[in-house]
């Protein structure tokens, strides 16, 4: 290890864990100067490291923070910082593993809604800055030839995100967003959500019924319309299915979330 690498290694170990041993190791490198004592100079860096990452969690997960309250939020910050260093060049990604942390941490995993809340907030970011693409015009279904319908495939706008939660996390998020008391946590029942970015680049979301979720998931998977209709026979009868699918496609066109038919 070169001298420079040893210095950087020592400093980084201290920033990640500013305990007495790591501080003592750092002090071997740090000059004694007039004014502030060397340990205090190091503390400025240790504090800045923690404050910066804490602020990212606070800003990126505002509703989760409100849901937790100050004390539990600080507990989550300390836990997440200790568990996850940043391999990222942008702070945009730093909280990507927060849902995973909340699912696995022995304390926070007792409250599964927390992981769902964090996951929902991550998906909002994903919709916010996903790639742009064309959007098929609302009257596009008129131009599809009858014999093409069975093999029709749909490509969605890159901002489209499908979520499945086992809690009322999104309902709680909405309440907090409107400065209201969140409902009591309800667990165990699957809820399905669609998130996307509209033409005005505003992120939107809406709840889905299970069949709608399956239909979108199927198209995202590359399945064609005939495969999808077969799948829906356990929900609708044979005569109902085409009408329901057609209505769903028309709704997606109006939302501007279809970028391509093939």
């Amino acid at each position: 290890m070169s001298e420079l690498e040893r210095l950087q290694d020592t400093m980084m170990r201290y920033l990640l864990q500013p305990d007495a041993d790591n501080e003592a190791d750092c002090l071997q490198w740090v000059d004694d100067q007039h004014g502030l004592a060397a340990p205090q100079r190091l503390h400025i860096y240790a504090n800045a490291y923690k404050a910066r990452l804490r602020e990212v969690i606070d800003t990126d997960h505002e509703m989760l923070g409100l849901y937790l309250g100050d004390e539990l939020f600080e507990q989550m910050v300390s836990g997440y910082l200790a568990a996850y260093q940043s391999p990222y060049t942008s702070l945009r990604q730093y909280c990507d593993r927060l849902p995973e942390f909340l699912r696995q941490d022995s304390f926070f995993s007792q409250y599964p809604i927390l992981s769902d809340l964090a996951g929902f907030e991550r998906r909002l970011f994903d919709a916010f800055d996903a790639a742009e693409s064309d959007r098929v015009p609302v009257n596009a279904l008129e131009g599809i030839a009858a014999n093409h319908w069975p093999i029709l495939k749909v490509r969605f706008h890159p901002s489209v995100q499908l979520c499945q939660f086992q809690s009322n996390a999104v309902e709680s998020w909405q309440a907090l967003k409107h400065n209201q008391e969140p409902p009591a946590p309800r667990l165990g029942e699957s809820r399905y959500w669609l998130l996307w970015r509209n033409q005005e680049r505003v992120t939107e979301f809406s709840s889905l019924q299970y069949w709608q979720y399956r239909l979108m998931a199927g198209f995202l998977n590359g399945d064609d319309l005939s495969q999808q209709c077969e799948l829906l026979l356990d929900t609708f009868d044979e005569n109902e299915t085409p009408g329901q699918v057609f209505a769903a496609l028309q709704a997606w066109l109006e939302m501007g979330i279809i970028s391509h038919f093939s």
Binding site: L4, Q8, D9, M11, M12, L15, L91, Y94
Partner: peptide, 25 residues
């Protein structure tokens, strides 16, 4: 400055030692 080592990013602009080794590096 340096911000990362061993693949971990401090997200801070950390000072370098002002040595000739560092200049060359």
């Amino acid at each position: 400055c340096w911000t990362s080592i061993h693949g971990v990013n401090s997200h801070d602009l950390l000072p370098l030692p002002y040595t000739w080794e560092t200049v060359r590096h």
